[in-house]
Design a protein around this nucleic acid. Structure first.
Length: 558
DNA sequence: GTAGGGTTAG
């Protein structure tokens, strides 16, 4: 910022401070500086009597990241003022659109103005379509491009990954390399690392790390941070720690990635220790760091430590807690069974509780069998967002937990009336470089019969050592025997049975699941890890469960 | 003066 002030002072001194060219230069300087100088950029912009295309472009660009809606309002202002956009304008406008997940109607405008054949614009379109979930549109733009650069490939790779097509993202990266015309750079490798993180496929994770060292790319802090995060998401927190230890330089994102990793792997005390160590190294935590530490505390049952961290956000760091921090505290109290305190906290929060906060409270009610409270909380959720299948499942679990089958059936009826269906559970497992998918209630796997047979025999064996199927959470009011078989074919059980059939050695079994693991599967896995002498790692929607020798890393606190 | 990337509560 200093050089901008100096520049401004010099302009004032020489009497050029109102000269359009001087103002343009000044505008460009502060727009390219830190976000803190944006208000200064706006005041310079306001001094320009008749902003031209260049000035509009500069100010739109400056706000595209941090206040995208302001960028779009500037774009409208530009159009109203009759200032023509050029091929620089649209990449900036599209960036703002991508952040807001909007602006799909821009395509026809750029087509009309003849900018649709510009590579920068096309890349921007891929990015926008990707962020809005319109994968097909993004792919059409991508495939029809006469020439693609690195940004086209990385935008399309990210687009696949963010929309749940991780393996397609990887395939596209292979296709890019086979084409041989573009050489991967740091950013594109980061897109690939991110795709692998979403997939949680450790084999691929190891491969990309090897790729990076072979590629001759500089091992930057960003790449290291991405690997720390990736290994944790692939279920291997030890590898995250190894990468972290080997990094010569780290920043707040690196520390935060490790803290989050430790938190989701149930290593709460270590996460908290890293948080304090990070401060000793002189790094200032940000909002994301606090979220990670609070998650660690809530999952580790560290109530007073978590509360202390939460209070420190405002008292020690002078920052305003975000909704996610309040959410973490609700979880912290709720998980520990302090439901009254959690409710009081929600009532007194200075921000309006959102549906996630209520949902967190609902989860706590289920875990601790607070039925009346659960009903009230569900009503709160209905006011905000009533079509979330998971809430009905949770409420149904509260009734099931105490054997109130009639109410449980009532929940099922109201789901039917509202045409809400429970999202099927789905588990993925990598066996000999092939991904196998198991979906609850689906027998499409080519070896389904033998897997089913083996699973039935597994259940029999585990029952001998104390496993009792817990049918209270089965959603439907069906016969007891049928409830047991519904449970038996939960996707993670099928995946683990399949792994035991395939892996004759004692290697760790790693499963990725789309939903939270249920109590029954959790209990099944603990026994299975003991009887079959295997480590089983399951990544569910939020966390990792490491089953070994009959117990789980979450210490059943989830 | 252009676009793609690393950490975010249930």
């Amino acid at each position: 910022m200093n050089h901008i002030y100096k520049l401004h002072a010099r302009l004032l001194k020489t009497g050029h401070h109102n000269h359009p060219l001087a103002l343009r230069r000044l505008l460009l300087s502060c727009s390219a500086s830190a976000p803190a100088s944006l208000s200064y950029a706006r005041s310079i912009f306001d001094l320009i009597a008749f902003p031209d295309t260049f000035s509009f472009n500069t100010i739109i660009r400056a706000h595209a990241d941090s206040s995208p809606s302001f960028s779009l309002s500037l774009f409208s202002k530009m159009r109203m003022a009759g200032v023509s956009p050029d091929h620089f304008t649209f990449p900036f406008v599209l960036k703002a659109c991508a952040r807001l997940q909007t602006g799909l109607d821009l395509h026809s405008l750029l087509f009309k103005l003849g900018f649709d054949s510009d590579v920068y614009v096309q890349n921007g379109l891929i990015h926008v379509y990707g962020c809005c979930g319109f994968l097909d549109f993004a792919l059409t733009v991508f495939e029809e491009m006469p020439e693609r650069d690195l940004v086209s490939w990385s935008s399309m790779i990210t687009c696949f990954a963010k929309n749940g097509f991780g393996y397609e993202a990887l395939a596209l990266f292979q296709r890019m390399q086979l084409g041989g015309t573009v050489k991967p750079d740091e950013v594109i490798v980061l897109s690939v690392v991110s795709a692998i993180s979403i997939l949680g496929d450790l084999e691929l994770g190891k491969w990309i790390r090897g790729f990076i060292s072979r590629s001759g790319l500089e091992f930057t802090v960003s790449l290291g941070t991405a690997l720390v995060d990736m290994f944790s998401r692939c279920g291997c927190i030890e590898e995250s720690m190894r990468v972290f230890d080997e990094m010569g330089e780290r920043n707040v994102l690196t520390w935060t990635a490790l803290i989050n990793g430790l938190a989701v792997h149930g290593r709460s005390a270590e996460a908290l220790r890293m948080f304090y160590e990070m401060r000793n190294h002189g790094f200032q935590p940000d909002h994301v760091t606090f979220t990670g530490v609070l998650v660690a505390c809530s999952h580790g049952g560290l109530v007073s430590e978590g509360w202390h961290v939460f209070e420190s956000i405002r008292n020690e760091y002078g920052m305003e807690p975000l909704p996610e921090h309040y959410g973490c505290v609700v979880d912290l109290l709720g998980r520990a069974g302090l439901l009254k305190e959690a409710c009081k906290f929600v009532e007194r929060m200075p921000i309006r509780p959102n549906s996630i906060i209520w949902r967190t409270l609902l989860g706590a009610c289920v875990n601790h069998n607070y039925i009346e409270l659960a009903e009230k909380v569900k009503e709160k959720i209905n006011e905000l967002d009533s079509y979330h299948d998971g809430d009905y499942v949770l409420l149904s679990n509260v009734y099931g937990g105490v054997g109130r089958w009639a109410e449980k059936a009532g929940v099922r009826n109201s789901m039917r009336e509202k045409r809400i269906s429970k999202k099927p559970g789905c588990s993925l497992i990598n066996v000999n470089h092939l991904i196998h998918e198991f979906v609850a209630g689906d027998n499409n796997h080519p070896q389904f019969e033998s897997i089913r047979e083996f699973l039935v025999s597994m259940i029999d064996i585990l029952k001998v050592v104390g496993y009792t199927p817990d049918i209270s959470n089965v959603l439907f009011d069906i016969e007891e025997e049928e409830k047991e078989s519904t449970l038996a074919y939960h996707s993670e059980k099928l995946a683990v049975a399949f792994a035991l059939l395939c892996f004759k050695d004692r290697r760790t079994i790693r499963v990725m699941k789309n939903l939270r693991i249920c109590h029954d599967c959790h209990c099944f896995m603990k026994h299975a890890s003991d009887v079959f002498e295997r480590e089983i790692i399951i990544r569910d929607r939020n966390h990792f469960h490491h089953f070994s020798k009959g117990s789980c890393s979450c210490r059943d606190y989830w």
